[in-house]
C-alpha cells in the first residue's frame, strides 16, 4: 500500500518531465533526423539518402560557417569565464553578507529585459549615428562617423554580455560552498596567491566552471538574435544558415540536416572539452 503510493507519486512527479523530454525534445529531433535523411528528387517526391549531408560537406561555405560559429563560441566561452570568475569570486567570497544579495541581483537585472531589446540597446550605442560615434565626433577625436556594428568584435562582445550571467550563477554557487578555511589552509601551508588559485580554488570550482562553460557554449552556438542584429547579414553564424534553409529557401530537408549537424558538432566540442580538461559530466555538472 505504502509502496504503491510512493510509486504513484513518483510517476506523477516524473510524468511532466518525461512528457516534456519526449514531446518537445526527443520527438522533434527524431522528426528532424527523418526529415534530414530525405532527398528531394522531384517536386513532392522524396527518397531516402544522405544527400543533404553530402551537400554540406561539398559546400565549403557551410562547414566554414559551422567552424567559425564553433570557434567564436569557444572564444565567447573563454571570455565569459575570464570575466565571470573574478566577479563570481568577489560575490561569493569577498563581498559582505549583505552586499552579496544586492550584487547578485544586479547581475540578474539585465535578464528582466528581453534579448531583443538588449540587442537594440547595443545598436543605439554603436551604430554610425549612435551615442559612441556622436560622442567621438563631438569631442573631436574623429572627424567622420564610425560604424561600430557589423564586425566580429561587436558580435563577441554582445554575446559575452548576453551569456555571462549563466557563467556567474553556477560559479557563485560552487564558490559559495567552499569553506574559507580551505583558502586560508592553502596560504598557511605555504602557498602564494597564484598557487592557491591554481591548486585549490580553481580545482574546487571545477564543477561550476564546467557546467557554466557548457551552458554558455551551447547558448552561444545556438544563438540567433545577437549575431544577426549586431553582426548583420555577414555575421555568418550557423543558425543563420539554418534559418535561411528553412525560411528563405524553404528547403526543410537541408535545414533539418544543418540543425542536426549543429547539435552533433556542439556535443562533440563539449565532449572534446571534457576529455581535454580531464573532467567527466558525472563529477562536475552532476555535483554543481
Amino acid at each position: 500500500m505504502q509502496s504503491d503510493i510512493k510509486r504513484l507519486s513518483l510517476i506523477l512527479l516524473f510524468a511532466p518531465f518525461a512528457l516534456w523530454i519526449l514531446l518537445l525534445i526527443i520527438l522533434p529531433h527524431l522528426g528532424m533526423v527523418v526529415l534530414s535523411l530525405r532527398e528531394k528528387v522531384a517536386p513532392r517526391v522524396y527518397e531516402f539518402g544522405f544527400g543533404n549531408y553530402i551537400d554540406f560537406i561539398n559546400e565549403p561555405i557551410y562547414w566554414n560557417t559551422l567552424l567559425r560559429t564553433g570557434s567564436m563560441s569557444i572564444l565567447v566561452t573563454i571570455l565569459a569565464l575570464l570575466i565571470g570568475f573574478p566577479i563570481a569570486y568577489y560575490i561569493a567570497k569577498i563581498a559582505g553578507r549583505r552586499s552579496r544579495g544586492a550584487l547578485f541581483l544586479l547581475c540578474l537585472i539585465p535578464l528582466w529585459v528581453s534579448d531583443l531589446i538588449r540587442a537594440f540597446g547595443w545598436i543605439l550605442l554603436l551604430r554610425e549615428t549612435g551615442v559612441f560615434s556622436s560622442f567621438l565626433q563631438w569631442s573631436g577625436m574623429v572627424s567622420e562617423p564610425i560604424e561600430f556594428l557589423y564586425n566580429d568584435v561587436t558580435v563577441v562582445m554582445g554575446l559575452v554580455y548576453t551569456v555571462i550571467l549563466f557563467m556567474i550563477v553556477p560559479l557563485v554557487s560552487t564558490l559559495d560552498g567552499m569553506d574559507d578555511a580551505m583558502i586560508e589552509a592553502g596560504y598557511n601551508l605555504g602557498g602564494n596567491g597564484y598557487t592557491v588559485l591554481r591548486r585549490i580554488i580553481v580545482p574546487y570550482a571545477m564543477p561550476g566552471i564546467v557546467s557554466g562553460c557548457i551552458v554558455v557554449f551551447m547558448m552561444t552556438a545556438g544563438s540567433y538574435l545577437t549575431p544577426i542584429l549586431l553582426g548583420g547579414k555577414n555575421s555568418s553564424w550557423f543558425t543563420e544558415q539554418i534559418y535561411d534553409q528553412f525560411i528563405t529557401r524553404f528547403n526543410w530537408e537541408s535545414g533539418a540536416a544543418f540543425g542536426f549537424l549543429l547539435l552533433a558538432f556542439t556535443s562533440f566540442v563539449v565532449w572534446l572539452g571534457l576529455k581535454l580538461s580531464g573532467q567527466t559530466l558525472a563529477n562536475t555538472v552532476a555535483k554543481s
Binding site: N188, L189, G190, Y204, M206
Partner: peptide, 21 residues
C-alpha cells in the same frame, strides 16, 4: 611576515582538507 611565509601551521576547526586531492 605574510601567513604563507610563517613557519606556523594550523589545523582548522573543520580540518579544511582539500577534497579535490
Amino acid at each position: 611576515t605574510p601567513p604563507n611565509k610563517r613557519n606556523v601551521k594550523m589545523v582548522f576547526q573543520h580540518l579544511a582538507l582539500f577534497p579535490m586531492m
